[in-house]
């Protein structure tokens, strides 16, 4: 019972902060001088990108811990974090391209920050696909942990590669830079808090789903072993 209170509280709190952040983006934050209204994408976009990257860091870290300890709960965290992170990065890529159109005049440009989000998207779509390939749970956990580690190492390498690539072939990417006023900073910080709370809530729910699945699998395995399959 106590546990459930916790979960409900967490969910309600994250919805509350999310709505507050949404209100601040449209009502509190000032209109940006050069880009105009479209700049308001920035707050949630940046928060989503940062928390998405953080989610993949959690996948990496829990993957390492899983390989050392072989405890299922770390694997559950690893998988849940990757799935939630993928949702965040998907939003980042789509809204990044919605931002690029009015500001840079094209839906897609190989701007480093946009590109690194796309690279992360490709990496973790592959991770989720690996997760769904039918293998014994223990093997898929080990494989996914290794892939999560290699994928996370690829992110900074890609970042530098894209940065150097874009500076060697300079492109006119004027615009998109701005001076942050205090009100903008407050809005960004509340947006970050909103996405952090959302991440924690979704991570916890996804992990609970996996725990229930494990219970069901254990129950079914026991029944099969006892000889009566029941109505499964």
């Amino acid at each position: 019972m106590k546990r459930q209170w916790w979960d409900w509280g967490l969910a309600i709190a994250s919805v509350g902060i999310f709505l507050t952040a949404l209100g601040m983006v449209f009502l509190y934050a000032p209109r940006e001088a050069t880009m105009g209204e479209i700049q308001r994408i920035f707050y949630f976009h940046v928060a989503s990108a940062w928390i998405g990257f953080f989610a993949f860091f959690v996948t990496f870290l829990t993957g390492v811990i899983y390989l050392i300890t072989s405890q299922r709960r770390w694997d559950v965290l690893s998988l849940s974090s990757a799935e939630v992170g993928l949702a965040f990065i998907t939003m980042t890529v789509i809204t990044g391209s919605l931002w690029a159109r009015p500001v840079w005049g094209t839906y897609w440009t190989w701007e480093p920050r946009l590109t690194i989000s796309a690279v992360q998207w490709l990496l973790y779509v592959a991770y989720v696909m690996l997760r769904t390939s039918t293998l014994s749970q223990e093997r898929v956990a080990r494989f996914a942990a290794v892939y999560g580690i290699v994928a996370f190492v690829t992110v900074p390498l890609s970042w530098f590669a894209i940065r150097w690539w874009r500076t060697i072939h300079p492109e006119i990417l004027s615009g998109g830079e701005m001076a942050i006023t205090p009100r903008m900073l407050h809005t960004l910080l509340v947006s970050l808090a909103a996405f952090t709370a959302l991440y924690v809530t979704l991570l916890r729910q996804r992990a609970l789903l996996e725990r229930d699945r494990d219970r069901l699998a254990a129950l079914q395995a026991r029944w099969v072993a006892e000889g009566d399959i029941g109505d499964v």
């Binding site: 209204e37 479209i38 949630f44 789509i94 809204t95 919605l98």
Partner: peptide
């Protein structure tokens, strides 16, 4: 208000 902004927040 730009429609890109609206679409973005609908996605969010």
């Amino acid at each position: 208000m730009s429609e890109h902004l609206i679409v973005a927040y609908v996605i969010f």
